[in-house]
Amino acid sequence: MSALLAAESVTVRRGGRALVEAASLSLRAGEVLALVGPNGAGKSTLLRTLAGLETPASGTVRLEGRPLAGWPVPARVRRIGYLPQSFTPHWDLTARALIGLGAGRGAVLPWGGTASGPADAPDGGIDALAAGFDLADRLDRPWSTLSGGERGRALLAAVLATEPPVLLADEPAAALDIAQQLRLMRRLRARADAGRGAAIVVLHDLNLAARWCDRVAVLRAGRLVLDGESGPVLRDPALDAAFGVRFRRTAEAGRVMLWPEEG
């Protein structure tokens, strides 16, 4: 299967230091890929580069075979959804306004004006979309009155409003409680299984990766040290070295589970 989104030998530098070095990673249709690694390994930088938010010093990122720079911006941003690690809007906008901005993103002209034509509403309208995210009665509430879970769902609804075939999510589970994490991962899995969109998800919880992701890629100090199917990668002793801990491994319903212990 050909890659939806692929980084080809991508190096990203900031201030003379390589944050990501010669990383090659590809995402195929129907996949949920976990990007894991210790803090500072370059996970966010690689994800931002894949999203087109960071320009690599060398190497290329291709979307559907075409370099990112070769895509018209509106078409590109409608195909790649990016979920940032932390999101704090500067104004107290409503969930409806946020989802509207997410849904209308192809309509932004180069000077930031509004194109006439397709309205900001996705198919079926913002209300229908919001219902799928359990936000129906929260749509017109200002951001400051929403709970953490509601904020996470509203942001995800905005990012997914254009049904992007690729979702890049930077630690989406970090601020969520266990039930919300479960719902999020189940949603991403279901999207991928239905062929509606593949995802790269930065995760800290390896057991979430084991349970929900087809593939796991491990970054350490800017380099991809492991990349493959979840089971084999998570059983690989190189994983212990990458994180600097010793994992005790057990099997649960055919899946590996990892229990970190002191080095």
Binding site: L53, V73, R76, V77, G81, Y82, F87, L98, L101
Partner: peptide, 10 residues
């Protein structure tokens, strides 16, 4: 929405 979010929305 912040510069990253704005850029990712085009």
């Amino acid at each position: 929405l912040g510069e990253d979010m704005a850029a990712s929305l085009g």
